[in-house]
Design a protein around this nucleic acid. Structure first.
Lengths: 249, 249
DNA sequence: TATACAAAATGACGTAACGTCAATTTCAAG
DNA sequence: CTTGAAATTGACGTTACGTCATTTTGTATA
């Protein structure tokens, strides 16, 4: 028989917890001293460990209570049910994670972070996909729609998308140095190569996308991530500069 | 001005919820009728939608209250913190999922499903977990951790870092195509150029960083983006291939 | 305009699993 | 026998509402 202090030392649970388990009838002490102090035995320690384990895999004390009490409990069904619940929860969190990444990426690109812009972003996020898809289908033909699937979707941590965001963010960072600065031209070169890599010869498609990007309203309708006008303008000029220089060789 | 019933119809929240939000000062009605019935306006509806959205991404009402009240709230930091929390939770659930699957499999194999056998399985699982933890604690010594903390740590929001991550992720994605594949060599080329750009002549520093990267544990302690051994190995080979080819011209 | 019935209001208790006081009592050592 | 540590009970707080019970207000109809 060991004291409650010894229990807390061995298992890490608090005194309050033991008292609570006693109170709800989940785990009574083996006995008490004359003065009323709780005493626990081997059996209780084992039971406590079971409880701890079942808690880690997500069961409630209520459920644990019933499981342990029921001599012929259907563990198989219970565990499967729990698995279903856990997987669903995990899925939900994955969704949330995606949304958060999307928001963070957008804020990284936008830079300005106040209630107003976040409100706009939230609204953009809440826009239903139907509208977006409808708009896109209006502009692109089937073949191009397939290519659109390849386009980086901002709420994923897709490496392609990440690189686009990183490149644009760097462009913004060094914008003050002018379109001919070596850093800028290096970035543009990378973007040019990446564009080739992703879309190949499909010039027309690229044109259409840039057309959408140039109009903030169109961008919003299409659900593209917003790039501010200044950066876009700067990019176009730097891009032109790069292409011109290139064709001179 | 619309009635509370209309609000519930439009947004799906319950009357009780609106009453609660009023009570805790999160969202007061725009006004009341002579008899005391709550009336809501456009502004309140918008705010309610914001609240709903922030709730879906896991913020508490307390947090939401503060966010909305604070005129210049740091959304970027807040969202990143939330992302950290959410990913951790997701990770925890993934662990639980694994454990549950393990238990279910063992029960399926063992067949007999009574309290006694489940107790044995639970003990087995707990032993494994303890072992695992012991193993991890063995690897992390304090000295190493301190050294790594002192190293110039690259901030995760930095676009430069972001691009490194993106490049490595792409490398991983196309790894199956072999070191000489054009996609791979393009990526390596970019990395090479970026390395020159970022570190210039500081060879020693680069060496140090790569030394850390070669040890997954060190990388994790240092807060670097984790690269698995396979990818690292692949990168080294592809890098060598690139440098050799380059020096042949 | 009186009435009936729906809708809204307030107030209170319940939830899960303890944490955290506060006041009192018991235990173990010296 | 004293003393300080440890343990006890009791009570309230936490989150985001759900769910009664009771009373008041709004509105449509006779």
């Amino acid at each position: 028989m060991i004291s409650i202090k010894e229990v807390t030392k061995q298992t890490g649970v608090t005194v309050r917890t033991m008292r609570y388990y006693d109170q709800i009838g989940l785990l009574h002490p083996a006995g008490k001293t004359e003065g009323g102090h709780r005493l626990y035995g081997e059996k209780e320690m084992k039971k406590l460990q079971e409880i701890q384990f079942l808690k880690t895999i997500g069961f409630s004390l209520q459920e644990i209570s019933e499981m342990i009490a029921d001599e012929n409990h259907d563990w198989f069904t219970g565990l499967k049910k729990q698995l279903g619940y856990v997987s669903k929860e995990k899925e939900r969190l994955a969704q949330i994670e995606g949304t958060l990444r999307g928001l963070i990426n957008e804020i990284m690109l936008n830079g300005n972070i106040d209630l107003f812009s976040v409100q706009k972003l939230i609204q953009l996020y809440q826009q239903n996909m139907d509208k977006r898809e409808g708009y896109l289908n209006q502009i692109f033909n089937e073949e191009e729609s397939k290519l659109l699937q390849n386009l980086p979707n901002i709420n994923r941590d897709d490496p392609e998308t990440l690189e686009w965001i990183a490149l644009i963010a760097q462009l913004k960072k060094h914008m003050s140095k002018g379109i001919s600065a070596p850093e800028i031209q290096r970035l543009i070169k990378r973007m040019y190569e990446k564009e080739q890599e992703t879309f190949g010869d499909n010039k027309e498609f690229v044109e259409k996308i840039w057309d959408i990007r140039k109009s903030p309203q169109k961008s919003e309708s299409a659900g593209f991530y917003p790039i501010d006008a200044e950066t876009l303008d700067f990019f176009e000029k730097a891009y032109e500069f790069y292409v011109n220089k290139k064709s001179n060789f």
